[in-house]
Structures are given as C-alpha cells and as structure tokens.
Design a protein around this nucleic acid. Structure first.
Length: 151
DNA sequence: GCCAACGTTGGC
DNA sequence: GCCAACGTTGGC
C-alpha cells in the first residue's frame, strides 16, 4: 500500500463537499508528473492526505482511500469544461486520467501547513520543499503514520 | 496583490 | 534541440 498527498482548492472542491458526497472523482489534473502517479502507481486501498491549498489556512483536512484506479478523465474532451484540453480532442482520446476516492476521516482542526513545518519528523516532506508545486505527491509511510497519529 | 519557482509553448 | 517568453501554482 502507498501513501499520497493530493491538493485541492477548497473554493473549488473542499473536504466538506467530499464528505457530504461520500466520493470524489479526481478530475482536472493537467500535469504529467501528477498524472503519471495516478496512472502508474495509484492502487485501490492506497491512503491519501486531502490537502487544502490557496486558502486562509492551508493544510491537511482529512484522509481518504483510493476506491478506483486510473481511468480517462472525460473533462478533457468536454468543451464546456474549464479542464477542456484541445490536444485530447484532436487525438480523439483524453490524455488525462483520474482516480476515485472515498473519505476516511476528517482532521479537527486541520493539520495546518504552519504546524507541519514545525515538526522535525516531517521536515523532509515534499510539501515543504521550496518550489514543489506538484498537486499529487508521494508521502512516506512514516510521514503518514506520524500525521495520522498526531491528528 | 506580490513574486519565486517552476512547467509549457513555440520560433528558430 | 535550444531557450526566451509566457502561464501557473500557491504561500504570504
């Protein structure tokens, strides 16, 4: 089993919406490295840290579980979608994929980025690396265990 | 709103 | 293939 961190802007899709819906299809990823993680490495049962970015208190809002492995992201072919991708339309097939998640539990309060920064055991998390903007990142088992024990 | 640190695009 | 210009991310 592997562990991941996935970023979302709560203005677009929040933990609260996720929990209420009971499921999420992670569409809209338009970065090759992030896509490749989903396509090649995500397995059913993998655990995900659900991260809120670009908001008043950036941080991990809860934990989720991968419930379906990578399949084509249809928003790439939908001209009315903000995630529409002309190159996918041209080739006739979506070059982007998504996975499905189900919520596990929420963190109350969120594990804020500021708090995470202060914890020596978490100092090597990719999240804290300058310039690291990947929206999907691998997390080590130790990091995951530390966070879910603390929060 | 600022801006550092990227990734992508496209002319050559 | 190079690389300048441009666009995006995301904390602050």
């Amino acid at each position: 089993m592997r562990y991941w961190l996935m970023k979302t802007e709560p203005d677009v899709f929040s933990w609260e919406q996720f929990a209420e819906k009971g499921k999420a299809s992670w569409d809209g990823v338009r970065n090759y490295q992030a896509r490749n993680f989903m396509r090649d490495d995500f397995k059913v049962g993998d655990k995900v840290l659900f991260y809120h970015s670009s908001c008043p208190v950036p941080g991990i809002a809860g934990i989720a579980t991968v419930s379906r492995e990578a399949y084509p992201d249809p928003t790439a072919l939908d001209v009315s979608s903000e995630y529409f991708d002309p190159a996918s339309q041209k080739s006739g097939a979506s070059r982007w994929v998504m996975v499905d998640l189900v919520p596990d539990r929420a963190f109350y309060p969120v594990a804020s980025l500021a708090e995470i920064r202060e914890i020596p055991e978490l100092s090597s998390m990719l999240l804290l690396k300058t310039g690291q903007r990947l929206s999907i990142q691998p997390v080590t088992e130790r990091e995951f265990q530390f966070i879910t024990t603390r929060w």
